[in-house]
């Protein structure tokens, strides 16, 4: 009997242990390695970094570490500018996403109940189709002789070709397009739950519809606004595909910088240092996001 309860404890202990172990090995450890390599010197050999870590040589490990790569990051203002520009582009995109996403989510929440699940499915559906393909579709639209120019010229709105591709605007359009479901769904979730009588009560107490929107709807939708914004802002900062395909060579973004350090310059330690830099930029939003999510999960019935 006792033996059986021991095996039972063992099997039930495996439930958290297996995924825990997996994430430890394939998520946490790689992370520490990035951190370590960011502190090592580039070498010409393949792989292109000097392996500073030998299990037998702990003292050597610490003495060989230096912050040279980070010094390089601070000396060359390219990285500083790339970081700033990434944050700026991500922030502007997030604001645009809110402006585009809120009316859609609001419309969905006010639609008759029997249509709502269909609308949600329609918002999610593009997400299931390839990200790369969806960005690719915009190249043909935004090209100087592309479909947007053709359409607008056809309507007589413009006479000269629009040159949007390879500008920051193309990046904004791409990010808003690709991340829209991530903004709309959390907003919809809070707006849909909102009690309509609260708005009626505000109107009844003399508040105009516009004022009621700002004093009642927006504050109550705040959890959704915060979740949606972070859900878009965080990956947007590190975005690579969109600036690479839609943004011109002038569009500086840190994810793209990391990619080119790695693939073009083959400087792995510097790429790791850039990764750490990116992570430092994102630590605060990620922590806030985790808190918001945890609270949302708790308050759910």
């Amino acid at each position: 009997m006792k033996e059986r309860s021991f095996t039972k404890r063992l099997t039930s202990g495996l439930v958290p242990a297996i995924p825990y172990l997996w994430l430890g090995v394939f998520f946490l450890v790689p992370f520490l390695i990035v951190f370590k390599i960011s502190l090592s010197d580039p070498a010409i050999a393949q792989p292109p970094y000097k392996p500073v870590f030998e299990w037998s040589d702990i003292t050597g490990f610490f003495s060989a570490l230096d912050v040279e790569n980070f010094e390089l990051l601070t000396q060359d203002d390219l990285y500083f500018r790339a970081t700033l520009s990434s944050v700026r582009i991500a922030a502007i995109s997030t604001i645009l996403l809110l402006l585009v996403g809120f009316p859609i989510a609001y419309g969905m929440a006010r639609a008759p109940e029997r249509h709502r699940s269909l609308l949600v499915a329609l918002v999610i559906l593009p997400f299931w189709t390839s990200f790369l393909i969806r960005i690719y579709a915009w190249i043909a639209i935004l090209k100087p002789e592309g479909l947007l120019t053709q359409a607008l010229t056809g309507m007589g709105l413009i006479s000269e070709p629009l040159d949007i591709l390879n500008t920051e605007w193309a990046v904004y359009i791409g990010i808003v397009y690709a991340y829209l479901p991530f903004m709309v769904l959390p907003l919809y979730a809070t707006l849909e739950k909102m009690d309509d009588t609260l708005l009626e009560a505000a109107l009844d107490l003399g508040s105009t519809p516009w004022r009621s929107f700002w004093t009642i709807t927006v504050p109550l939708a705040m959890p959704g606004i915060i979740a949606g914004s972070l859900l878009c802002f965080i990956p947007a900062v590190g975005e690579f595909v969109i600036p690479d395909l839609l943004g011109g060579s002038e569009t500086l973004m840190i994810g793209r910088q990391l990619w080119s350090e790695f693939f073009s310059n083959r400087d792995w330690p510097l790429a790791s240092a850039v990764a750490i830099l990116l992570l430092i930029v994102l630590v605060l939003p990620i922590v806030i996001y985790r808190d918001v999510e945890a609270r949302r999960m708790e308050t759910r019935p």
Partner: peptide, 17 residues
């Protein structure tokens, strides 16, 4: 939420290590 470039790079370095 982690940018994919970080996840990709860290796993690669792990596999190399």
């Amino acid at each position: 939420v982690m940018p994919e470039v970080i996840t990709g790079l860290s796993l690669l370095l792990f596999f190399v290590a």
